[in-house]
Nucleic acid binder design. Structure first.
Lengths: 242, 242
DNA sequence: CAGAAAAGTTATGGCGCTTAACAAACACTA
DNA sequence: TAGTGTTTGTTAAGCGCCATAACTTTTCTG
């Protein structure tokens, strides 16, 4: 990731701008070609440069991909956060719908970046510090976790559809998300993971075109009823507008 | 896809065997390198041939990929069918667990092939005849559909957690799966799709390593409780062993 | 056995990634 | 203002892989 220097010199600002231009060009090409496979040559050509010039910014193609991945999961997190801000904090059900819809919209609008972040890991990609990949999961999840905490503290969190929890899951809940301890019951932590998985499933299928045999309006309806089902199964209150 | 000739000449059998060897070598390399990106050069080297020889069998790399994709979704379907055969047809809940577990095991054992079939579509891949990609979805789904038909005819299918169905979804149910008409209610058809999506979600996350922060045993438990939740939400009877 | 078909080989071109060597632009200092 | 070092870009070149062409060897068939 590239840190944008605020009080930086002219050169540093130019350099930062070039980093951004490279990444944006790469994303444009990915969108245009429907692939996560970007050619350095093409990026350089679009930018009006020669390919070797890019090596002043990235050591190799994998380093650019890594940067795009870390950017990607931050954008996903931001999209969700932004959607959440637009909803009354009291309206837990509405917040769930907003977050899930943001997740979906981001995946639909940026399927390649979505695939980079949450699809099959790219081979050359080395995960620094426990891995942004894992961070992506935890980042998206932490907002979900916050939702469950809110629901629990405001006593709107019902028991999930399945309450059997194995010790392994309980241990993991304690280890990885200690902020939930004493607030969100273990069975709700499990339900939260399953809500995320269920959401991710329908979003993945749609983003990769496996639901194209549906009319767009039917897909919308299917998605909305899906996340309503997920909310019910997880014990979240359903949207206040219904 | 390569049709295996039964009463074929020596040469035809040799050719078919070479096709199989190419595909198996490609899959081995994919497993070994953790990529769907296979080099013709490497395949040839492992097979003790020169790269151009492979062009007697596949016009280009994309054609091999297409073959692997169509093979892949057939293998997935077979794995599910095989798992289903081992369970008492009366035990709807057990059959759901078996099918879902087979889906999971296949994805875990062949993550690259799973990514090819149900991940982001590969760019050069042209879908013949409405597309194997869509066929993959429908193929896996038709077995799910059969499960719901069985459940409905034996009166074990309860109402799903969400019963609101939009006209678009109902139309699609009628158009694409007429075999369900009059047997499986539309809300159950919708629930079936959502069950598949939910299953796919947790399987994708696990196959791509996004649940690696769980202990293996915890992942198993999470998966089992997930599909139990999904079954409940869809109105399927839960496994008879519980 | 002869000729055709199939399968494989070497030779070759093209393209993309990447490094090396060089040139121009820029910034800082005397 | 001139000089010097850094940054950013260029051209040249090597390597590897995809793919085609032309040629050779093997295998089938009449």
């Amino acid at each position: 990731m590239v840190v944008i220097p605020v009080g930086a010199s002219r050169r540093q600002r130019a350099r930062a701008a070039t980093f951004e231009e490279i990444k944006n060009t790469a994303l444009d090409l990915m969108r245009e070609q429907g692939t996560t496979d970007v050619r350095f040559t093409d990026i350089a050509r679009v930018m009006g440069m020669t390919p070797p010039a890019l090596y002043r910014y990235y050591a190799d193609r994998d380093e650019l991909l890594t940067d795009l991945i870390t950017d990607g999961y931050r954008h996903l997190g931001d999209a969700i956060a932004e959607a959440l801000e637009a909803v009354d904090p009291k309206d837990i059900g509405g917040r769930w719908v907003a977050a899930a819809s943001a997740y979906r919209e981001w995946a639909r609008s940026e399927p390649q970046q979505f695939a980079l972040v949450l699809g099959m890991p790219v081979p050359g990609y080395v995960a620094p510090d426990e891995g942004p990949t894992t961070e992506a999961a935890k980042g998206a999840m932490s907002q979900l976790a916050a939702l469950f905490v809110d629901a629990a503290t405001s006593r709107k969190l019902r028991k999930p559809l399945v309450c059997d929890v194995s010790p392994g899951v309980a241990d993991c809940a304690h280890d990885k998300h200690p902020e939930l301890d004493g607030v969100v019951p273990t069975e709700s932590f499990q339900a939260m993971l399953q809500a995320w998985a269920s959401l991710h499933g329908i979003v993945s299928l749609e983003a990769y075109g496996h639901l194209d045999w549906f009319e767009p309006k039917a897909r919308d309806a299917l998605f909305l009823s899906h996340i309503e089902m997920v909310a019910k199964a997880a014990g979240l209150p359903t949207s206040s507008r219904s």
